[in-house]
């Protein structure tokens, strides 16, 4: 229930340092190095987990959640990058939710407006997101939480580019904090 094969795989890399695995990995590394060149080229997506099309849909959804006004919105802030990166780690249990959720939203968009979600104009996108039900609605709730984390969280995780949200809120990007002062004796003195 907690662990399917995919999580086991992710769990495996934690042990990468262990001696028992090191030799195996070296061999595996050689074997996969060449394959990687091919596979990366073929995927043709700037993302780690998402396909290019999924990335486009997700960017549009994120931008609806935190839109651009006088400050840049979620898309500029790199929230898709944030989510994509977390899907390789802490969000990995939500991979299926993203795959099906994004598909359902695009499907709903096509059936209602005849276009995929990212191609709709903003009011249509808003209307569609507000009308979601069932699984798609639950996925959207997840996407809201994740978008907020990406936009208002730490830049180190791949979102909140240039600390854009912190500056919008008036939070010092890096606080100015002194410690107890200590004067070093002059060298040679």
């Amino acid at each position: 229930m907690l662990d399917d094969g995919r999580y086991g795989l992710a769990l495996g890399h934690v042990k990468i340092h262990s001696l028992r695995r090191r030799r195996f990995l070296r061999i595996a590394g050689t074997a996969t190095a060449c394959g990687a060149l091919v596979s990366c080229g073929r995927q043709n997506t700037p993302w780690r987990f998402l396909t290019a099309a999924e990335g486009r849909t997700l960017a549009a959804i994120c931008e609806q959640i935190v839109p651009t006004d006088q400050t840049p919105g979620a898309a500029w802030a790199g929230v898709v990058n944030f989510i994509d990166r977390q899907l390789m780690g802490p969000y990995r249990r939500q991979r299926d939710a993203y795959r099906t959720g994004l598909m359902e939203i695009d499907r709903a968009s096509v059936s209602k407006f005849g276009k995929d979600f990212a191609s709709l104009d903003a009011p249509q996108q808003t209307a569609l997101l507000e009308s979601l039900t069932g699984g798609a609605q639950r996925f959207f709730a997840t996407a809201i939480a994740h978008t907020m984390q990406g936009y208002y969280g730490d830049p180190r995780h791949g979102g909140n580019r240039d600390a854009v949200s912190w500056r919008m809120l008036g939070v010092p990007v890096i606080p100015i904090r002194g410690r107890n002062r200590y004067e070093f004796p002059r060298q040679g003195a």
């Binding site: 609806q64 959640i65 839109p67 006004d69 919105g73 809201i144 919008m168």
Partner: peptide, 11 residues
């Protein structure tokens, strides 16, 4: 919980 109004509220 989302959208322009939420962002305005935050700001």
């Amino acid at each position: 919980q989302w959208g322009r109004a939420h962002k305005d509220f935050m700001r």
